[in-house]
Design a protein around this nucleic acid. Structure first.
Lengths: 164, 164
DNA sequence: CGTCATTAGTTGACGTGTCATCTATTCTTG
DNA sequence: CAAGAATAGATGACACGTCAACTAATGACG
């Protein structure tokens, strides 16, 4: 469908409007804001973690394993906490094991499971990263008063409830 | 029920501990909430878009091109609006062009640039997706009163300002 | 003008995320 | 106890995101 000159002009006008009022609804604006913000945060933390030789996702796996303590953690438990499908987690673990940051072993009681532990060397790596990451986290939320941080957390919870 | 009663109990306990003291700081909790929420939204929209034969990112490219109207859009402009590096955009465009949803042409005035347009067929595809996506967007923000949506948008803006 | 820096974009390589499919093991139930 | 269902996980295939290195074209400046 070819447009007339008039309709093209109208479209140009809409484009100008779009710059000053780019969203069709507050919902859409909020969703895009969420996406962009979480993306910026991801990049920020990636910058801190990757110089230490692991990816952000690999870091998250290590965090989960540290939290689990001496009890071996099955692969699927890790996947659950990462909100990620198993195949991705298997491969993350492959790489972490290759770097000797993680140890895996088949569970004797249920030989379908593979239990995972963080190694000493993994713990040392996490120890290096703890402070810079915590500092970056706090800093990124600094512009928000405490009450606003709490409000943000509650607001996001409501959205996830609806979606879950 | 795959696990023994004992191991399930142990796991439940760990989860409870984690629930009572899951975060070292509200900042960290907010960041994780942001990540999880944006991830859930991404999945939701992906579910709507992919049955139509394109990915969510391909959809975003088409949206940008539709917004640009009849004026060809250089690849880098698209990348800017997607907050994404150029190589990814080049490949998205490759795929969209293969599906005849996008047309590309070297700019005669500046032969370094490649201008991109959405095709009629691309516009038709977007038209199919407009309503379901808008509806899903509104629905996902439904649990929030308008004022809370606005507050969310402003809060996220503050965070991004700090990070930018 | 001619060289050198800059800009636009592509390509290769690698890490991640997801789906479908597969194996191994355990559970369930007749 | 012997199928068959369900569970844990691995593997292949494919899409995306990013970095580094590359090509091609333009611009700047002596």
């Amino acid at each position: 469908m070819a447009q007339s000159d008039a309709s093209r002009k109208a479209k140009g006008l809409r484009d100008e409007i779009r710059q000053s009022k780019p969203f069709e609804s507050p919902a859409q604006e909020a969703i895009l804001a969420l996406y962009r913000t979480s993306d910026m945060l991801r990049r920020r933390f990636t910058q801190i973690v990757e110089p230490h030789g692991i990816s952000l996702q690999q870091y998250n796996v290590l965090r989960i394993l540290r939290g689990a303590g001496k009890t071996g953690t099955p692969t699927l438990d890790i996947a659950d906490r990462m909100i990620e499908m198993t195949p991705g987690v298997t491969r993350l673990l492959d790489k972490l094991e290759a770097k000797r940051l993680v140890r895996r072993e088949r569970c004797p009681e249920d030989r379908r499971q593979v239990l995972c532990w963080i190694t000493e060397s993994g713990l040392r790596l996490l120890a290096e990263l703890d402070k810079p990451l915590a500092a970056a986290g706090v800093k990124s939320m600094e512009p928000l008063p405490g009450a606003e941080q709490q409000a943000l957390i509650r607001t996001l919870e409501k959205i996830r409830e609806k979606l879950g």
